[in-house]
């Protein structure tokens, strides 16, 4: 198949790659950009493990073709910590509150929560559960993921008790 050259700017770094049109954004990030932190759990848009931010919007990278993202900016889990590996406050909250076990779904939840916490509106319990119900986790029963995001929201003043 013929490949098309595209540029993806991922976590601030431009990646000039060539892809078949059918290559999903998730596969391109993993296989062409070498950023394997974005995981594939179902490849049909249900599990959310591949969640990334595309020009600031939260998307499923398995439901988006890389070629559509030509020239656009993408944020993935690899961009959350500082270059020396220091965890950001959200990651740190996941760590302290045991918000992960096997860690496979974790990048997707981190990116989903990153988006949630960057929205203008404050987060209450109902909105937290509503938004996080987007992604599947098999290990944690969601308890400590919710706790971690709640803690991160409180830390940045985004948390509000139920309206």
């Amino acid at each position: 198949m013929t490949k098309t050259p595209i540029r993806l700017t991922v976590n601030g770094v431009p990646h000039d790659i060539a892809v078949e049109p059918r290559r999903t954004l998730a596969d391109a990030l993993r296989d062409d950009c070498g950023l394997t932190g974005t995981h594939l759990g179902c490849e049909h848009g249900v599990c959310g493990a591949c969640t990334v931010l595309l020009d600031g919007e939260v998307v499923r990278a398995c439901l988006h073709f890389a070629i559509q993202a030509d020239g656009r900016t993408i944020r993935t889990v690899e961009g959350l910590a500082t270059p020396d590996g220091t965890l950001n406050p959200l990651q740190h909250a996941f760590w302290q509150h045991h918000g992960l076990q096997c860690g496979f779904c974790t990048p997707g939840f981190l990116m989903l929560a990153t988006w949630l916490l960057e929205q203008e509106e404050p987060v209450d319990e109902a909105r937290l559960r509503h938004v996080l119900s987007s992604n599947l986790c098999r290990c944690t029963g969601y308890q400590n993921i919710l706790t971690a995001v709640r803690a991160a929201a409180q830390a940045i003043g985004k948390w509000t008790e139920a309206a």
């Binding site: 848009g45 959310g48 969640t51 919007e57 939260v58 998307v59 499923r60 439901l63 988006h64 989903l112 988006w115 949630l116 509503h130 938004v131 119900s133 987007s134 992604n135």
Partner: peptide, 12 residues
């Protein structure tokens, strides 16, 4: 709208 799939689907 809030019943349509999930936030990352609704953005697209």
């Amino acid at each position: 709208a809030e019943h349509i799939a999930h936030a990352p689907i609704r953005t697209r």
